[in-house]
């Protein structure tokens, strides 16, 4: 593997990996904030981070250094991060409303 590596490739992969997850987190955070405060402004900004996250993933696979299989895994993750906030919001919201309603009915 070493003959393909240059020092800058290594730094590119590490830094883009770092920013990929960081932006995925920022996207999720802003999306969640937008939903909870019902401000669409946050949600719009969050999509910028979604794109940034995806771009970082693309950056990560540009050097030839990684084998194709790992590139697939990275791209799979990048796609998953695009939908995690929406999916997770639905899960959390549905379960909370369901059980809180049950709880309240019990109180009554």
């Amino acid at each position: 593997m070493h003959n393909l590596l240059t020092g800058s490739d290594l730094l590119i992969i590490m830094l883009s990996g770092f920013f990929m997850i960081l932006f995925a987190g920022a996207y999720t955070l802003l999306y969640g904030l937008g939903k909870i405060t019902k401000k669409s402004k946050y949600i719009k900004i969050s999509y910028i981070f979604a794109i940034a996250q995806f771009t970082a993933a693309l950056m990560m696979i540009t050097p030839d250094f990684l084998d194709p299989f790992w590139k697939y895994i990275i791209m799979f993750s990048a796609c998953a991060y695009l939908f995690i906030p929406q999916g997770m919001w639905w899960v959390v919201h549905t379960s909370h409303t369901y059980w809180e309603r049950q709880e309240n009915n019990k109180d009554v």
Binding site: I21, T28, Y31, K35, I36, S77, A80, I84, H93
Partner: peptide, 25 residues
């Protein structure tokens, strides 16, 4: 090792939504 730990951040990102929901609700 590479496969399982590459997927590890997925649930951690998902957890963020839960924290925000708890705080906001």
């Amino acid at each position: 090792g590479g496969f399982f730990s590459a997927l590890e951040p997925l649930p951690l990102v998902a957890m963020i939504i839960h924290a925000i929901y708890d705080a906001g609700a």
